[in-house]
Structure formats: structure tokens, C-alpha cells
């Protein structure tokens, strides 16, 4: 069953009055519940842009009626519900409660300790007090940083910071984790650790994981690799270890 489904996703960045960049040129994508998917492609191919749209950080371009690239109206379904045109507040709530984010440069709040960073995600999801504290401590334990809760990001190594970020993404047990080049700033041993963590959560909790990556080793460790180029999906990939018969279910009319 698809947890994330997008159709006609376009994104145009307006740099100035008549200088625009078409970062996404009509993307169709479907990601099944419980899948661990890699999105790969050359730099500038629109991977991050797609992830921001899937993560409700950006809205896809609406139909404006005056652009050459105008196509049918965009559609974005999260567990079947169309979320393409929700208000900022509604999208924020979904991000807080149903999604977890991991970024290339960790993006921890520098003034907060590791534990406080994780607690922030609980807070935004409306979880407070002892329940939140317990969950945060548990999440830090899961990423192997039980004894680092009181440290500031500046007192942690890159690999540790990224694990704090993963703990923060996981703490609310979201349905989907979106990670944009999570291993991009880590050496290969740290990358392997981080990847192993994602794999573990995917196996143990059935969390859907979408990884944007440059690294073909990361891609190989995923269930499926979606290849992008020039704002389009070139290859939607095949889910490893799943019958080929499942594929037509996610195929969409061209």
C-alpha cells in the first residue's frame, strides 16, 4: 500500500523576474509503507526539492494557467489523503507528528543539549513532561548515545551529531522518515553505522524511509533506488526481494 504518492509534482524557483529554474518538471512517485527507498541522481537533478515537497516543507506549484510547463493539477497523497494544498498550520502538524527529518549537516539547535534537541521534536508533536523525557532518553539509547544526552552539539563528533538528529527524527515514531544526504558529511564507517540504524528501524518498526543520497553504497543497502535526472524521475526502480508483480500497482499512466 502506498503511503506517499505524488503526481504532476512541479517546482519552479523564481530567481528574479524573468529568471526561473524548473527544479521539478512533473514527477510521479509512489512509495510503499514500510519501504526503504533511496533517491539518487546527479547534483542539481531535483532530489532535495522532491524531498522537501514529499516532506511538506514546500508545496508543489499549483496550476497557474500561464506557464509553459503547466500541466494537470498536482496531487500529493499521504496515506491516501490529499495533502497538496493544506494550510501551513496543517502541514506543520503533519511534519511534527507523522514525519521525521534528517539533514546532511545535522541541523541540531546549537544552544540545546542532545537531549533537549530530541525533546524539541516531542514538544512540537504535543508530547510533554515525563512521557516526552522517557521517549527522548529511549531514542538516544537506540542510537547509542544514552550517555551523551547532556552534551551540546559542539561537544559531539559529526557521527554523534547525526545520530542525535536521527534520534530526534525517530522519537515520535513517525510513519515516514525523510533524510537528505544523511551520510554526506560522514566517513564510510560512520555512514555504515547511520545506514544500519535506518535499516534497523525500518525492520523493527516498519517505518518508511526515504533517503536522498549520492552514495551508491547507500543506494544498494535500500530496498529500491529511484533515479532522478534533470527534474524528472528516470527510473522508479524495482523493489528488491518483492515480486515483480507488485510493480504495476504503483505504475501510473504517462
Amino acid at each position: 500500500m502506498a503511503i506517499l504518492e505524488g503526481r504532476n509534482l512541479r517546482k519552479t524557483y523564481r530567481l528574479s523576474r524573468n529568471n526561473t529554474v524548473e527544479a521539478l518538471k512533473g514527477v510521479e512517485i509512489s512509495i510503499d509503507k514500510g519501504e526503504m527507498v533511496a533517491i539518487m541522481g546527479p547534483s542539481g537533478s531535483g532530489k532535495s526539492t522532491l524531498m522537501h515537497i514529499l516532506g511538506l516543507l514546500h508545496a508543489p506549484d499549483p496550476v497557474s494557467g500561464n506557464s509553459l510547463s503547466d500541466g494537470p493539477a498536482p496531487e500529493l497523497r499521504l496515506a491516501g489523503e490529499n495533502v497538496a494544498a493544506l494550510s501551513d498550520n496543517a502541514r506543520t502538524r503533519i511534519r511534527a507528528r507523522r514525519m521525521g527529518f534528517v539533514f546532511q549537516d545535522f541541523n541540531l539547535v546549537p544552544t540545546l543539549t542532545a537531549l533537549e534537541n530530541v525533546l524539541l521534536a516531542c514538544d512540537y508533536a504535543g508530547i510533554k513532561g515525563k512521557v516526552a523525557k522517557d521517549a527522548a532518553v529511549e531514542a538516544l539509547g537506540l542510537v547509542g548515545l544514552a550517555d551523551r544526552g547532556g552534551h551540546k552539539p559542539s561537544e559531539l563528533s559529526g557521527g554523534e551529531q547525526q545520530r542525535v538528529a536521527i534520534a530526534r527524527a525517530l522519537v515520535n515514531k513517525p510513519e515516514i522518515i525523510l533524510a537528505d544526504e544523511p551520510t554526506g558529511n560522514l566517513d564510510s564507517d560512520r555512514s555504515a553505522e547511520v545506514l544500519a540504524l535506518f535499516r534497523q528501524f525500518n525492520r523493527e518498526h516498519g517505518q518508511t524511509i526515504v533517503l536522498v543520497t549520492h552514495d551508491s553504497e547507500v543506494g544498494e543497502a535500500c530496498d529500491r533506488v529511484i533515479k532522478m535526472r534533470d527534474g524528472r524521475i528516470r527510473d522508479a526502480g524495482q523493489r528488491a526481494g518483492t515480486p515483480v508483480m507488485a510493480i504495476p500497482a504503483v505504475a501510473v499512466p504517462a
Partner: peptide
């Protein structure tokens, strides 16, 4: 600015 971006991304509302 960046910190606000992080907070917004992980689910802080505008009101927060």
C-alpha cells in the same frame, strides 16, 4: 535564521 528553519522543519508552528 537557520535555527528557526530547523525548528520549523521539524514541526514548530509559526505561532510557536
Amino acid at each position: 535564521t537557520r535555527e528557526i528553519g530547523i525548528k520549523r522543519a521539524i514541526g514548530a508552528s509559526r505561532w510557536r
